[in-house]
Simulated scan of single mutants.
Amino acid sequence: MINTFHTSLPPPPVPPRQGLHPRPGIRVTPLLWFLSVIMILQMVVTFGGFVYLFRKSSMLQTELQGREYDDLIVLKRLQECDVSSDYNTLLDCGKLLSKYRSIISKVSQAEGKAGFLSAGMPFYGSGAVAHMTVERPSGSSASQTLKWNRDHSLLMKVEYLTSPGALKIVVPGDYYVYSQVTFTKVHPKIPLVQTIMRKSADKEDLLLKAFCSMRDEEAHTSFQGGVFRLEKEEQLSLNVTDMKLINFDVTATAFGLFRL
């Protein structure tokens, strides 16, 4: 028999199959939020880094330009000192030169210390050391003892006596003593020689002696050095054949010592 029954109601829903579940879309939202925050932070940090580098370079360039401008002002003042005859201007120039001498003295001391260390000589922060730069005599002198520029020399726990031109030992011990002299002329009668003399309260003796030979007025440098036991209050000085025969450049003639 054929069923001819009809109805207008929709058919019932199909029950879900076993093992199938709806797509868990809500679980993706925290992950996407975390990745979005990371990307935003990275963009902010990158942009901030570029801004910092740009401002840093701008400040550095401005500082360099300011230094160049200051240098130009100083050069202009020096030119005014050269051409001006005004009394007040000359007084200002004197103050400027005095400051320059103080700065040059500090720089020379630093360079002397750096040169001493770079020469491969041992240096002890708590020890005694001296490296003296030669000073040109102010006038004609018959003395054979060289003088040294106290302001442009390196001195630590060693005293310099200006009048005899000698180094005075403060801390007793074993010292390496050295000297370098550059001769520029030949003496017609006596040989070219440099000697390091040691003087104590009751005697004076010779520590080192070096001879120098020259040909056809060509400059020649002699160097000498040795280790000696030095006591407190002893004085060391450097003598030459004739002061008029040596080179007074600070890199050509020197005298020094350091405690081992």
Rank of each mutant, 00 (worst) to 15 (best):
E135C: 08
N149R: 02
T145I: 15
Y178D: 00
K157H: 09
Y100A: 06
L192M: 02
G127T: 01
V134L: 10
T145L: 15
L117D: 09
A166V: 04
V193M: 14
L167W: 09
A166M: 08
Q194P: 10
S105H: 00
A130L: 15
G115I: 00
Q194N: 09
I190M: 15
S138G: 06
V193R: 15
I104D: 06
F123H: 15
L161I: 14
R101N: 05
I169E: 05
Y100W: 03
K113Y: 10
S163C: 08
S108Y: 02
D151N: 10
R150C: 14
L192P: 02
V177E: 03
S163N: 10
V158H: 10
L161A: 14
S105L: 00
L97Y: 10
T162F: 03
Y160R: 13
S141E: 07
H152Q: 11
G127K: 04
P164D: 09
K99E: 08
F116V: 02
S163A: 11
P191H: 06
S126A: 14
S138C: 05
K185Q: 14
G139L: 02
A166I: 08
Y124C: 13
S163V: 08
I103D: 10
K147T: 01
I104L: 06
L155P: 02
L155F: 07
D174G: 04
F183H: 08
Q194F: 02
G173C: 14
A128H: 00
Y175E: 13
V134C: 07
M132F: 11
P191W: 04
L161F: 03
R150M: 13
N149V: 01
K147N: 03
G127I: 01
S141H: 07
E111R: 13
V177F: 11
Y160D: 14
A166W: 03
T195G: 02
Y175V: 12
I169D: 07
S118H: 06
G120R: 00
L192N: 04
V186K: 11
L117A: 01
L117V: 09
I196Q: 08
G120F: 00
A114E: 10
Q144N: 09
Y124K: 12
T184C: 06
T182L: 15
G125S: 07
S126N: 13
K185H: 13
P137G: 03
F183K: 08
V170E: 15
V107H: 11
S143R: 15
W148N: 11
P137F: 00
Q109V: 05
V186M: 12
A119C: 11
V186A: 10
G127P: 05
